[in-house]
Each structure stands twice: as structure tokens, then as C-alpha cells.
């Protein structure tokens, strides 16, 4: 348990450091950086490398945005196994939906509740 927290902290932190380097050294905007991360996550899962990574780092691998790409691929592959090529299309959001729907729902609730503070 302690090890889980430790590695979640370290791996999660290191992924963020990579992001910071992309910000500061390569002068990428946050949008560019995050898009790159998502694509990297998708590719890593394509090679089957992201799952072991999650097993190891737990939330350190599932909380960074890279896991978004991973779970998109995962959903697509799961469905593809059952329904063939068309599953690639239909399964895409099967696993990720919670992140996106949570963002949409809480985004709207936030807009109802809050004003920008400046």
C-alpha cells in the first residue's frame, strides 16, 4: 500500500516533469503538450506497454492525461475483438466515457454555480 502511494507519486510526478520540459524547453502551449501526451498514451497502449505501466504505478499512470489515450485504444481494441473492425469505431469511448462525461457534466454544473474570479 505504501509502495503504491510512493510509486504513484514518483511516476505521476515524473510524467508532469516531462510536460514541464515540453512547456519550458520546447515552448509548447499546454494544448500542444496535452495533445502530444494523449497521442503518446495511445501509441504506448498500441504496443501493449501502458497496461504493465498502470499495474506498476497505479494512479501515477491513470491520472495523467496519457491514460486517456490508453483507454481510448483499450476500448476500441476490446470491441474490435468482439465485433471486428467496426468495433474500433464503436468501442472507442467505452472506457473513457467517464472522464469526458464527468468533464461535461461538472463543467456545466460549474457554469451554473460559479463566476470567474479573475
Amino acid at each position: 500500500m505504501v509502495a503504491s502511494f510512493f510509486w504513484a507519486f514518483v511516476i505521476g510526478g515524473l510524467i508532469c516533469v516531462i510536460g514541464q520540459i515540453m512547456f519550458d524547453v520546447f515552448h509548447l502551449t499546454p494544448a500542444h503538450t496535452l495533445s502530444t501526451f494523449v497521442v503518446i498514451g495511445a501509441i504506448l497502449d498500441g504496443f501493449g506497454l501502458y497496461e504493465p505501466f498502470i499495474d506498476f504505478a497505479g494512479a501515477g499512470a491513470t491520472i495523467p492525461i496519457t491514460s486517456f489515450g490508453n483507454s481510448l485504444v483499450h476500448g476500441a481494441l476490446q470491441e474490435a475483438e468482439k465485433h471486428g473492425l467496426i468495433g474500433v469505431l464503436t468501442g472507442m469511448f467505452e472506457v473513457t466515457s467517464s472522464g469526458i462525461s464527468a468533464a461535461i457534466i461538472f463543467g456545466f454544473i460549474g457554469a451554473l454555480l460559479f463566476k470567474p474570479k479573475g
Binding site: 509502495a3 503504491s4 510509486w7 497496461e51 504493465p52 505501466f53 499495474d55 506498476f56
Partner: peptide, 9 residues
Amino acid sequence: DHMKRFQLK
């Protein structure tokens, strides 16, 4: 063991 979790599956 945590360090072996890469080979979990």
C-alpha cells in the same frame, strides 16, 4: 512485490 508489478499480467 511492487518492483515486479510490471510483469503482473
